[in-house]
Amino acid sequence: MSSYNLTHLAQLEHEAIFIMREVAAQFERPALLFSGGKDSIVMVRLAQKAFAPAKIPFPLVHIDTGHNFEETITFRDWLAKDTGSRLVVRYVADSIKAGRAQEEKGPNPSRNGLQTITLLDTIEEFRYDACLGGARRDEEKARAKERFFSHRDEFGQWDPKNQRPELWNLFNGRKNPGEHFRVFPLSNWTEMDVWQYIAREKLDIPSIYFTHQREVVNRNGVLLSKSPYITLLEGEKYETRTVRYRTVGDSTCTGAVESDAADLAAIIQEVASARQTERGTRADDKRSETAMEDRKKAGYF
């Protein structure tokens, strides 16, 4: 074997760094969409590496639904400080107050869809022309069709049937005023790659990824955490289980999984033998066959 070989994880890392630098070079006002979850934590590390010894040349932007896990918010603030990044937070609650968005009705009203409104308003407010996101193609079938450089029209909409072909390492970020791009450097990463990278880089992650005791209610097979935003239905009750989270979204739509994985090695073992995709724990994706595609078309992450 020639010595000029790179492991697949190294190749993914070099690819993601290349994409981030293209964003810095091709756009005037990029931002990194930061959720506090594992994918965006990996994104921040890659951005640090891409521009070292300079600081990350774009702000971290968080669209806060108000339904986040507290641990994620604490972690978000710590990471922004630790990396010396500017943190921009915009609240779905403000969009609702301003009458730009309306709260869902029902037993677990989700603000997941409303995030799109706040996100697009934020993009407009700061005139961001490229938003880096940590979405991966292996997550969900509509995401499998995403480009690295994904064009959004002046209404922030995605047109999956009319995407620009992407060839070699040539990325076309040209656009008209008012349009923007979503850019996904982790497109080719799998859930396993992300965990392996976190382990290799010894990255800190929010505590809810590790096993803990939590009061949960089982709703349609999804274990939802006890929270002020959830109303118990008839026959439902909270019970304490030993759980962790595989993905971190809103507490109202992200389910916990029963697990006693207490460290990264145990999580990796669990991911390797998992028989459910990580989004299998997301109630927001279960709403319909094409729930993700529909939200993405409207401008979702």
């Binding site: 969900e140 079938k141 509509a142 499998a144 069709k145 999956p160 799998t190 529909d294």
Partner: peptide, 25 residues
């Protein structure tokens, strides 16, 4: 994966898939 693809039973454009064996990804 796309709605139009499922409805029309066609593939619209390139989809990327991932798998790994102990030797390679």
């Amino acid at each position: 994966g796309l709605r139009a693809e499922r409805e029309q039973g066609i593939t619209i454009d390139v989809a990327y898939r991932y798998f790994a064996t102990p030797r390679r990804k």
